[in-house]
C-alpha cells in the first residue's frame, strides 16, 4: 500500500513537471513572436553557443570519426567487407553520431552554463530586478538563447559531421591504406540529401531542447549556492536524456520506411 502511494506520488510529480515544462515552452514561443526582440542578447548567445563550442565539437567529432573507421574496418574485415568504411562512416556520422555528439556537447557546455547563469541571477534577485524594470525575464533571457541555439546548433552539427568524416578519412588513408581520392568520392556518392537534412533538423531540435531546458532549470532554481548546483546538474541530465530520446524519435521519423 505504502509502495503504491509512493509510486502514485512519483507519477503525479513527474506529470506535474512535464506540465510545467510544457507551459514554459508555450510561454517562450508566445513571447518569441512579440516585441521587443533583444538583439544584443541574441548576438551574445550566438557567439557563446556557436562559436565558442567549435573547439570541443571539432575535437569530439575528429576522435569519434577516427575510432568509427577503425571499428568498421575491423568488423567489416570479418565479412571481407573492409571497403565499406567510407560509406558507413559517412552514414554513421551524418545520421547519428554527428548530431548526437554535438547535442550532448551542447548539453554539457551550453545547457549547464545557461542554467548556472540564470540560477545565479535568480538567487541574487536579478530576475526580480528585471521585473521591477518592466522587463519580462522570459523575453529578455529565454527567447534570445533559444532562438540562437535553434539557429546555430545545426551549423555546429554541419561542422561536426564534416570533421567526423574527416577523422574517418585520416585514419583510413593514413593507417588503413585507403586511396584518398576514392575515399572522398565514395563518401560523396553515398550520402543522400535526406541524410544531411535529418542531421540539420536534429541539430535544430537538440539546440532548442538544450537552451529551453537550461533556461527552465535556471529560472526555477531554489535559493542559495546549493540551488544553483542542483539546477545545473538537473538541467544537464534532463537535456541529455531529452536529446537522446528526441534523437530516437527523429531517426524513426526520417528513416523507418
Amino acid at each position: 500500500m505504502r509502495f503504491l502511494a509512493a509510486l502514485g506520488a512519483a507519477v503525479l510529480a513527474a506529470l506535474a513537471s512535464i506540465g510545467r515544462f510544457s507551459m514554459f515552452i508555450a510561454h517562450t514561443f508566445a513571447r518569441a513572436v512579440r516585441r521587443p526582440f533583444y538583439a544584443a542578447a541574441f548576438g551574445k548567445a550566438l557567439l557563446q553557443i556557436g562559436f565558442f563550442s567549435l573547439p570541443v565539437v571539432g575535437l569530439t567529432a575528429l576522435f569519434t570519426g577516427g575510432a568509427l573507421a577503425l571499428q568498421i574496418y575491423a568488423g567489416g574485415s570479418r565479412f571481407s567487407a573492409e571497403a565499406v568504411v567510407p560509406q558507413i562512416v559517412a552514414i554513421g556520422v551524418v545520421r547519428e553520431l554527428g548530431p548526437v555528439l554535438v547535442g550532448l556537447m551542447v548539453a554539457a557546455r551550453v545547457t549547464s552554463s545557461i542554467a548556472a547563469e540564470l540560477a545565479t541571477m535568480k538567487v541574487t534577485e536579478q530576475i526580480d530586478a528585471l521585473h521591477t524594470l518592466s522587463t519580462d525575464p522570459m523575453q529578455y533571457l529565454t527567447v534570445p538563447r533559444v532562438f540562437a541555439a535553434t539557429l546555430v546548433v545545426p551549423l555546429l552539427v554541419a561542422v561536426g559531421d564534416t570533421i567526423g568524416i574527416f577523422g574517418g578519412y585520416l585514419i583510413s588513408t593514413l593507417r588503413l591504406d585507403f586511396n584518398p581520392a576514392s575515399y572522398l568520392q565514395n563518401t560523396v556518392d553515398f550520402l543522400e540529401m535526406r541524410d544531411i537534412i535529418s542531421s540539420l533538423v536534429k541539430g535544430a531540435v537538440f539546440g532548442t531542447i538544450a537552451a529551453l531546458v537550461g533556461c527552465y532549470y535556471g529560472l526555477n532554481s531554489d535559493r542559495g549556492a546549493i540551488g544553483v548546483g542542483v539546477a545545473t546538474k538537473g538541467a544537464v541530465v534532463a537535456a541529455s536524456v531529452l536529446i537522446l530520446a528526441a534523437n530516437f524519435v527523429l531517426t524513426e521519423a526520417f528513416f523507418s520506411t
Partner: peptide, 26 residues
C-alpha cells in the same frame, strides 16, 4: 512597474552589463 524604482537589499545588479547600462537600463 513602470512607475516604480526598487533598490534590492543585495543591490541585484546585472553582472553581465557595465554599470552605466545597469543604471540606464530602462
Amino acid at each position: 512597474m513602470s512607475s516604480i524604482g526598487m533598490l534590492f537589499q543585495g543591490a541585484a545588479l546585472f553582472d553581465s552589463l557595465p554599470v552605466w547600462q545597469n543604471v540606464a537600463f530602462r
